[in-house]
């Protein structure tokens, strides 16, 4: 880390569709100021994005005995950005049986991230 020189990172806030342009000032790895946000969420986003960028993950898994072939699932919280592909891969072989309730945990602690993956949709069994 550079000593006491201020480093400025620029991000587009993804907190909402407005997409504010954030400037995050950091000194020696510590965020000292976030600028450009329109709301508090943006400030939090800027700080987080600098320190530990995370993203929500959505994908699908196989479901047996329902009217559709795939069950949409998502991470209950955001996962580290750099592990998105790994997390999606960990879910690729997963298959659940109908019925499924929305919010039901499909895979706990996915890929050791400490984050659970939950169902985004309820599916009734068929037949």
């Amino acid at each position: 880390m550079a000593d006491s020189t201020t480093e400025t990172a620029v991000y587009l806030c993804t907190g909402c569709p407005l997409g504010c342009r954030l400037e995050v000032d950091a000194v020696a790895g510590d965020v000292i100021e976030v600028r450009g946000h329109t709301c508090k969420r943006g400030e939090r986003y800027g700080r987080q994005e600098y320190l530990d960028p995370r993203r929500p993950l959505s994908t699908t898994v196989w479901v047996r005995g329902a009217r559709v072939a795939r069950l949409p699932v998502r991470s209950a919280e955001s996962v580290p950005r750099d592990r998105l592909v790994e997390v999606a891969e960990a879910l690729r072989g997963v298959c659940v049986d109908a019925p499924v309730r929305r919010g039901q945990v499909v895979l706990a602690d996915v890929a050791g991230t400490g984050v659970d993956v939950i169902a985004s949709r309820s599916l009734e069994p068929v037949g």
């Binding site: 929500p56 959505s58 699908t60 949409p72 985004s120």
Partner: peptide
């Protein structure tokens, strides 16, 4: 919405960011 499995829905209607299928349900 059923095929829009990504999150980005509901910020106004439910005050939280959810996926399309959740919003629909």
């Amino acid at each position: 919405l059923l095929q829009c499995i990504h999150s980005g829905f509901g910020l106004h209607a439910f005050k939280e960011e959810i996926t399309g299928p959740e919003y629909a349900e």
